[in-house]
């Protein structure tokens, strides 16, 4: 029993060890990796991805999955830019309303997603994938395929303002992570997500309204996707359909690599932070040591297979589709 517990405790730390190992490896190949400026760069590129990954973490904790992020991020990014520009173009003026407005849009998209999954009883991966396609189409329809520029210097200060070397965006992402942590550990819905992931039947017989909780999970995810969209716009200064690109693969990989199990019930937002950092360190490190960035998808693909493989208890599973 003790040996088993020790093993389990060790397992918990594997993702962090992998992260440290990767950092050491890239530093050994090219010492430039280990620089403050490079870390600040990784922090910026990781901020939008962290928000999206944290969002999907809640859904995965329940044992479902949300693959709608590319569409949701695209719609939120585009609507955010339009709202901001329509409200005077500056966060300092009425433009700030675009932020809650976008979070609301994210929540609505998440609610639609959850409702379709729960009410029509469609597996979440397919319901959310379909809605992701709808979202991409919607954002294309809104923009007509064009880019929307954001010129507001105050909004862009999320990227440009540096405090202690790190961009303001990174601090904002950290704050959002702390909120997510609070939701996860200290609220009833957060704890009930774990209950559903740990045993849906048992949770239901204890009287939890599982359907409602699932929908709530998708709403929370949608809000975090919207946050990710805002950071992504701040980072590039433009909003377009492409803003959502690649978030699906990267965020799901991050969550899984961070050690949150796909079957639900274990892991959490701190795991996701580690996972996002692993993914971004790999992306950054490959560039630093001179490998073309297009290897990234392949490497992440292998990583995700390895992570799911290692985290799955195959004895308890009979049939996997």
């Amino acid at each position: 029993m003790n040996q088993f517990l020790a093993m389990e405790n060790f397992r918990k730390w594997i993702p962090l060890l992998v992260l440290i190992g990767l950092a050491l490896f890239f530093t050994a190949v090219n010492p430039n990796f280990l620089s403050f400026r490079n870390f600040a760069r990784i922090a910026i590129s990781a901020s939008p991805a962290l928000m999206v990954a944290v969002g999907v973490t809640f859904v995965i904790l329940m044992g479902s999955i949300d693959l709608s992020m590319e569409g949701t991020v695209a719609v939120c990014a585009v609507l955010f830019a339009l709202m901001l520009n329509a409200l005077g173009g500056s966060i300092a003026g009425w433009g700030w309303m675009a932020i809650p407005g976008t979070l609301f849009v994210g929540a609505i998209l998440g609610a639609i997603n959850g409702l379709i999954h729960v009410q029509l009883k469609i597996p979440s991966f397919m319901a959310s994938l379909s809605l992701g396609f709808v979202g991409i189409g919607l954002s294309l329809l809104i923009t007509g395929g064009n880019r929307i520029q954001i010129e507001d210097p105050i909004f862009r200060s999320l990227l440009t303002l540096r405090i202690g070397g790190f961009a303001l965006m990174s601090y904002a992402a950290l704050a959002a992570l702390l909120i997510a942590w609070f939701i996860q550990d200290n609220t009833t819905i957060g704890r009930n997500f774990y209950a559903i992931g740990g045993g849906e039947d048992l949770a239901r017989s204890s009287g939890l309204n599982v359907g409602k909780l699932r929908i709530t999970g998708f709403v929370v995810a949608g809000i975090f996707f919207a946050l990710g969209a805002i950071f992504a716009v701040a980072r590039l200064g433009i909003a377009e359909t492409e803003t959502g690109r690649n978030f699906m693969f990267v965020s799901v990989t991050s969550v899984v690599v961070g050690g949150t199990a796909l079957r639900g019930g274990s892991g959490g937002v701190w795991n996701t932070l580690v996972g996002v950092l692993i993914v971004n360190v790999i992306g950054n490190g490959m560039v630093v040591i001179g490998l073309p960035d297009y290897f990234q998808d392949g490497v992440l693909g292998l990583l995700v297979i390895a992570a799911v493989y290692l985290s799955t208890d195959r004895r308890s599973l009979s049939f996997v589709k």
């Binding site: 704890r191 740990g198 009287g207």
Partner: peptide, 14 residues
Amino acid sequence: LISNLTVMENIFLG
């Protein structure tokens, strides 16, 4: 009992 939750969470689940 839901095994990934704490004892108290299980006692007061729901």
